[in-house]
């Protein structure tokens, strides 16, 4: 059992006061290890909220540097951070919020060759990537290693997210078999309302904190979608599929591969 300092008791008091979190839940948060894939629109709010919540170890992977076009939605990065690595910029903000936590940074792209080694040490993964190949790669690696994760995606005024507990609940491939054709635009081409990134990344953070503390019911076997234009939220039931190519009874996918994406999508 952790002996909380007076400062920690005050810092985490609003968690400890919650019946479903309590002292025990805050201890679990301080001992948890969460990896955020992508320090962009979704990863930024996730990084800040996980740090604020006292998640003991937060890993963050991203190979990019901060660009001015990121600042409209990637709230961990400030104007002064332009041209510095996103993982460095995010780390500074997380440490400033909460010096209690350990932060591990990975300045690289996640790919089939490195993903297993990077994620195997974590209790939960937040997918905050901006491209389909990596979303499928995260799903497949998490299924192989049995690591729970939160899928998330945003475009224009829309967001979607679901929480996956491999082996128990529907995985991303149960419903979305393979990356869509290259015609599906990315934010870079289609645009995205800045606050939509915060909405979705914050839902993913809440799911992470719920998973670690055991509070409430997770967004499993269902896809939450919203349209910020009409502020309509829908929860669509998605069941596990017996014939899922990766978590079904006779999986066809037995190893990790990098899916291809059009060159423009890698920008």
């Amino acid at each position: 059992m952790i002996d909380f300092t007076e400062e920690q008791l005050e810092r985490y008091s609003r968690h400890i006061l919650l019946d479903d979190v309590d002292v025990d839940g805050q201890e679990k948060l301080l001992q948890a290890k969460v990896l955020i894939v992508g320090a962009g629109g979704l990863g930024s709010p996730a990084a800040l909220y996980l740090a604020a919540a006292g998640v003991g170890t937060v890993g963050i992977i991203d190979n990019d540097v901060v660009e001015i076009s990121n600042l409209q939605r990637q709230i961990a990065h400030f104007s002064k951070d332009i041209n510095i690595p996103k993982v460095q910029s995010a780390t500074e903000k997380m440490s400033a919020i909460n010096p209690d936590i350990r932060i591990r940074t990975y300045r690289e792209y996640l790919c089939a060759d490195n993903i297993s080694e990077i994620i195997m040490d974590y209790d939960f993964i937040i997918d905050g990537t901006d491209n389909f190949p990596t979303k499928f790669l995260v799903n497949d690696a998490c299924v192989f290693l049995g690591i729970p994760f939160s899928h998330g995606g945003i475009l224009r005024f829309n967001g979607q997210t679901m929480t996956i507990i491999p082996g128990q609940t529907a995985c991303y491939r149960c419903s979305f078999r393979k990356p869509p054709p290259d015609e599906v635009p990315l934010c870079a081409q289609a645009g995205v309302l800045g606050a939509v990134a915060g909405m979705l990344g914050t839902i993913q953070s809440a799911e992470t904190l719920k998973y670690i503390t055991g509070a409430g019911d997770l967004l499993t076997n269902s896809l939450l979608t919203f349209d910020a234009k009409t502020m309509t939220f829908r929860k669509i039931r998605l069941d596990r599929h017996e014939n899922c190519p990766i978590c079904g009874s006779e999986p066809q996918i037995t190893e990790l591969v990098d899916a291809e994406q059009a060159v423009c999508g890698l920008a």
């Binding site: 059992m1 909380f4 008791l9 005050e10 008091s13 400890i16 006061l17 309590d22 002292v23 025990d24």
Partner: peptide
């Protein structure tokens, strides 16, 4: 609410 926080720590 710190008195309640400390009460919960004692209970834990």
């Amino acid at each position: 609410p710190m008195n309640l926080v400390k009460t919960k720590v004692a209970f834990s």
